[in-house]
Write a protein that binds this DNA or RNA. Structure first.
Ligand SMILES: Nc1ccn([C@H]2C[C@H](O)[C@@H](COP(=O)(O)OP(=O)(O)OP(=O)(O)O)O2)c(=O)n1
Ligand SMILES: [Mg+2]
Length: 861
DNA sequence: GCGGATCAC
DNA sequence: TATGGTGATCCGC
């Protein structure tokens, strides 16, 4: 592997072991003498603090690789064959999700900043030029790239590579302007295009192609030509069946070119097979190294070939991502816009130990950060201090405050404490970040402006350090008014449910948590990307990463449903902790989880039998299970020993860990995604959801006006929504359920319980109103997880209550599917799954949200 | 919840 | 002389 390379080269050609990102392939670097570049970079870096730190990191990476390698060597052949089974099944399941019906286009401007600069100063044309300074350059034009000059390279090194290099300082306003021009063009092809950074976007051109009878390639030509005529800038495009592939494609014929990958499985597979893994977004320098040096994986094809190793050594979510990459899969839907989760500000300066100086830098940064937060109307409660020491070591120190804040005084006060604890230290960078925002999300969530606009904002700037209390009372004096306003809207649009909802006096409008946001200027159509190359609110939520240690990752892994085809066998815990059916590990102390788990296996089996295939049911053993209401009694160790050899479609879940994981609803959406790779940016334009479905934040915002404090938690695919009285904290209602595949329906949202505790409610009349809110969060969660259908059981308690329930659910959009009476064998699966008898009802989630949109989206005044 | 790493642009 | 800034995710504690 790397033996020969490192030992011989280190002595004679030391630069070969200094691996920088600059050695990676990149458009415009084809004819570059890589060795020469590497040598020069090495010569100028050698011995520097930066270099030493890179060496330190390199060492750590090597250790990681070695560790991974050892682990792979220890795997027995039986381990591998077991993992291979998992891989084979997973491949089938992933393959089933392949969607070749959509046409995605990824467009990326060529040498963006540099091209813009050339536009405003044509004399730069044809000459090697870089945007940035001698310390760092942001990008370089293609003339400069011939010399090996590229983004993120220090300017002084670039100048050594290319003595005639012209430097132009950055000017974000210009780039933003041209970015906007280009986006106007994009909008013509996909009004909901997903904007990445200033210079790239994803467009779903399926409809345009269909409507105009043009191919993806023709649309790409036209779009690029249009971008050129509108901006004077060239760009490159990639067209493929999903975003991951489209992104890879846009780089192929860059600059000023395009590449179309036909939506045909074998074409895709051929394309992907020889593709170096580093080309895939999310696989960077480290991951590439680990996969290559420890596992011998170089191409995407290898990912499939060595799938068993991946599943043995990485977390399930990472392995899933890798495998899906190997299959050429990627996201094909248009994700919902996501709001930012943190805001930060950091500055580099010449390293110093001078405490006075450091404190004053800190104060400046706190001030800038505070200003930014105010501009966005954000308040947050977790503060993180970031330091880069003179030796380039990165340190971070965080505190969570009792109250939300955006004041520079608050920030500085706590930041100072954090910094103080680190002194003395020589520092070259200080940064501050605020996260854990107060509920609202508004920003980037277009539909949100509805309520926001009702809130008359005063300038909440400068809450004098009153320390605490920033809250609503101070900022939004007109709170009551705004709330009642929104409430009215709410009620009127509810007429359909009036009889059930009854009154809604909703006396105490709390507004307690309403943040002081304003974000006035939300221009009607603004992708949320803003200034500078910074604000790209992009995330790749799939971070394949090297999980290490942990012989068996399978235990605490992510929650991802895995479908297995296994013969039915009795369930028991191998060695007392490992499920013999699926291998999941659950220590005996995980009583509840074990219960759910064994129930789940049994239920799946029953459903399978019911749903056709094998009719050989074995009623006996299941009967008793059914007695216990869902959560309590225990199905002993399933003795359904009568294992028919029927092959069963089992779905099992890997619980994330012992406890529910607290997540904000926004985060939630991605928690259960099946297909990992996503680099999901913010949908641009303000229209947000196509049909203006109520977003999670709409629902939450609306609920707060009703003094409801809603929360959602997840445990793997399971979720729990709780509604509390915002004043007392007392629980008013909750909904629980699970997101899971259902026969022939893809993912469905299974609503287990919607429980309301009217005792604790002040206004016991609006119980069902609360139920609607709690349910809406669950439904929206389902929507975000990709469910199309929601299922529930209107439980039979008493005639009166039951019919009321059915009526209620029917009104809000559910339809009766069947009666589960308990008298038919076929009911057993339902009874087991649902924990009782009643009326099974289904609803189309999209329709449901549409129907409810009037409620949660106060139509514009 | 915190801290370190990784990644993208 | 000189190696950026912003935001996100994941993992292991
Ligand atoms: N580490 C980086 C990478 C990029 N950028 C900025 C400058 C680029 O102009 C812009 C777009 O990034 P790209 O990766 O798309 O690079 P270019 O557009 O400059 O070149 P090309 O897309 O032709 O390869 O983002 C940056 O500031 N820092
Ligand atoms: Mg570009």
């Amino acid at each position: 592997m790397d033996n020969g390379e490192s030992s011989t080269n280190n002595s004679s050609r030391p630069w070969e072991s200094y691996n920088t990102v600059f050695t990676n392939a990149k458009a415009g670097m084809e004819g570059v003498d890589k060795e020469k570049v590497q040598r020069i970079v090495y010569e100028l870096s050698k011995g520097s603090k930066y270099f030493q730190n890179e060496e330190r990191k390199e060492t750590l990476m090597k250790q990681k690789i070695e560790h991974m390698h050892d682990r792979s060597a220890k795997l027995s052949s039986s381990d591998l064959s077991n993992y291979q089974k998992v891989v084979d099944r997973r491949i089938l399941e992933l393959e089933a999700t392949r969607d070749l019906s959509r046409i995605w286009l990824h467009v990326d401007m060529d040498a963006f900043y540099a091209a813009v600069e050339t536009l405003s100063n044509p004399s730069l044309g044809g000459k090697p030029m870089a945007v940035g300074g001698l310390s760092m350059i942001s990008t370089a034009n293609y003339e400069a790239r011939k010399f090996g000059v590229r983004a993120a390279m220090p300017g002084f090194i670039a100048r050594k590579l290319c003595p005639d290099l012209i430097f132009v300082p950055v000017d974000f306003t210009k780039y933003t302007h041209y970015s906007e021009l280009a986006r106007k063009v994009f909008r013509n092809y996909d009004p909901q295009f997903i904007a990445g950074s200033l210079d790239e976007a994803y467009l779903d051109i399926t409809e345009v192609c269909r409507e105009r009878g043009l191919s993806g390639g023709e649309i790409a030509e036209e779009l690029r030509s249009s971008v050129y005529s509108e901006t004077g800038l060239t760009c490159s495009a990639g067209v493929a069946a999903n975003r991951l592939l489209a992104k890879v494609c846009s780089d192929i014929n860059k600059p000023n070119g395009q590449f179309i990958l036909q939506n045909d499985r074998s074409t895709v597979m051929t394309f992907i097979s020889s593709l170096p893994i580093r080309k895939i977004g999310g696989i960077g320098k480290v991951t590439e190294h680990i996969l290559k040096d420890a596992l011998g994986i170089k191409t995407c094809e290898d990912m499939v070939q060595k799938g068993s190793l991946l599943y043995a050594l990485f977390s399930q979510s990472s392995a899933d991502f890798f495998l899906s990459v190997g299959l050429g899969l990627g996201e094909t839907d248009t994700p919902q816009a996501r709001s930012r989760k943190s805001i930060s500000c950091e500055r580099t300066f010449s390293a110093t130990e001078d405490e006075k100086l450091l404190y004053s830098k800190l104060a400046e940064i706190a001030e800038m950060l505070s200003d930014d937060m105010k501009k966005e109307g954000l308040i947050a409660r977790t503060l993180t201090l970031k330091l880069k020491t003179a030796t380039f070591e990165i340190r971070s120190r965080a505190v969570s405050l009792k109250r939300y804040t955006c004041s520079s005084e608050d920030i500085l006060k706590h930041a100072t404490k954090l910094l103080k604890a680190e002194l003395p230290v020589s520092v070259r960078l200080i940064g501050l970040r605020m996260s854990q925002f107060s509920d609202e999300i508004r920003h980037s969530d277009p539909s949100q402006e509805t309520i926001t606009k009702f809130i008359v904002q005063k300038d909440f700037s400068r809450q004098n350090l009153d320390d605490n209390k920033i809250d609503a009372s101070k900022n939004c004096l007109s709170n009551d008014e705004s709330m009642s306003l929104s409430f009215d809207t709410h009620e009127t649009s509810y007429d359909q449910l009036k009889d059930v909802l009854e009154n809604e006096e909703q006396s105490q409008l709390d507004a307690n948590k309403v943040p002081p946001n304003q974000e006035c200027t939300r221009k009607e159509e603004r992708p949320q990307v803003l200034e500078g190359d910074a604000l790209l609110i992009k995330h790749k939520e799939y971070k394949p990463d090297t999980s290490h240690s942990m012989n068996d990752n399978s235990s605490a892994q992510n929650s991802e449903p895995v479908t297995l085809f296994l013969p039915i066998e009795p369930l028991f815990w191998i060695d007392g902790y490992k499920c013999n059916l699926c291998g999941i590990e659950l220590p005996p102390s995980f009583v509840e989880e074990r219960q759910e788990h064994s129930d789940f296996h049994l239920a799946q089996r029953l459903q399978n039998e019911e749903s056709g295939s094998s009719s050989s049911t074995t009623p006996t053993s299941k009967r008793r299970i059914l007695g216990k209401e869902k959560a309590n009694s225990k199905p002993k160790k399933q003795k359904q020993s009568e294992k028919d050899d029927a092959t069963c479609h089992l779905v099992l879940y890997y619980p994330h860990t012992i406890s529910f994981q607290e997540r904000t609803p926004e985060e939630m959406k991605m928690a259960l995604n099946l297909i990992p790779p996503k680099l999901n940016l913010s949908p641009s334009n303000s229209l947000g959801e196509p049909k203006s479905l109520p977003s999670m934040s709409d629902i939450l915002t609306s609920s707060r006006a009703r003094n409801l404090d809603l929360k959602i938690q997840t445990l793997g695919p399971f979720f729990r929504v709780t509604g509390k009285n915002a004043d007392t904290g007392g629980e008013i209602g909750r909904a629980e359920g699970v997101v899971r595949p259902w026969f022939g329906q893809g993912l469905v949202l299974h609503l287990d319980t919607i429980r309301l505790t009217k005792e604790t409610m002040k206004m016991d009349k609006s119980v069902l109103g609360v139920g609607l809110y709690v349910g809406a969060v669950a439904i929206r969660h389902g929507y975000d997880c990709g469910c199309r259908t929601a299922q529930l059981l209107a439980i039979y308690d008493s005639d009166l209550y039951h019919s009321k329930l059915v009526r209620f659910y029917r009104r809000i959009g559910f339809e009766e599917v069947k009666e589960v009476s308990g008298s038919l064998i076929g009911d057993m699966a339902d009874m087991l799954v649902w924990g009782g008898v009643g009326t099974r009802m289904d609803a189309n989630i999209h329709h449901l949200l549409l129907k409810w949109s009037k409620v949660f989206l106060k139509s514009n005044v």
